[in-house]
Design a protein around this nucleic acid. Structure first.
Lengths: 91, 91
DNA sequence: ATCTATGTTTCTATTGACAGAAACATTTTT
DNA sequence: AAAAATGTTTCTGTCAATAGAAACATAGAT
């Protein structure tokens, strides 16, 4: 089995708190903030903030946002589904 | 809610395949290989390979392995539990 | 059609993870 | 205790992600 699959497999068995602990363990602080920023970018893109607006608010560069936009262009993106579910919960 | 918690929350709802897809979406190829290597290091440390042996076999530097060793020193580490579960499955 | 806002790409510089190598610390073997 | 093996830290250099800024592309508004 490839390693990422194995990791996914292990994560799948965990509770929210455990996933949080696992990520905190295996990622550096910087990596976590990188990951968090990508997530925030995806959320704001989904909420139709303009890229320049997002760049200003999250204090990130445009090139990073373009990357996020590419992910969301794939209509089957898991990220897209997850983010939309979060949006719906807030309603 | 802090962002990492929110991400963990979303991941917790996914199947193995979806987690795999999500990680592939949101991480770069390099980041995935970094993460995979860390995982392999943890597994080999748990199997009591010497650090120098691991460094040679996985072609990584010692400083990276020390980091892995620090994670496993925490007896409550989630990673440790996950890795041991995998080991047990193989018996 | 022109102007403006927005999306996308590209350039140079910066930064953090980490390689390679060596030094130092600790544990194990003899 | 001395030697050997292993763990840990430290140093310099490298590389990938990305900041900052500008240029280019496209879509909408007028």
């Amino acid at each position: 089995m490839n390693t990422l699959k194995e990791i996914s497999n292990s994560i799948a068995k965990l509770t929210v708190e455990e996933i949080n602990a696992f990520l905190t363990e295996i990622l550096t602080e910087k990596e976590i903030s990188t990951l968090s920023n990508r997530w925030r970018i995806l959320k704001m893109l989904n909420q139709n903030f303009s890229q320049r607006d997002i760049a200003t608010r999250l204090n990130v560069s445009l090139c990073k946002i373009t990357r996020g936009a590419k992910i969301l262009k794939n209509k089957n993106a898991i990220s897209l589904r997850l983010i939309r579910e979060i949006e719906n919960e807030h309603k």
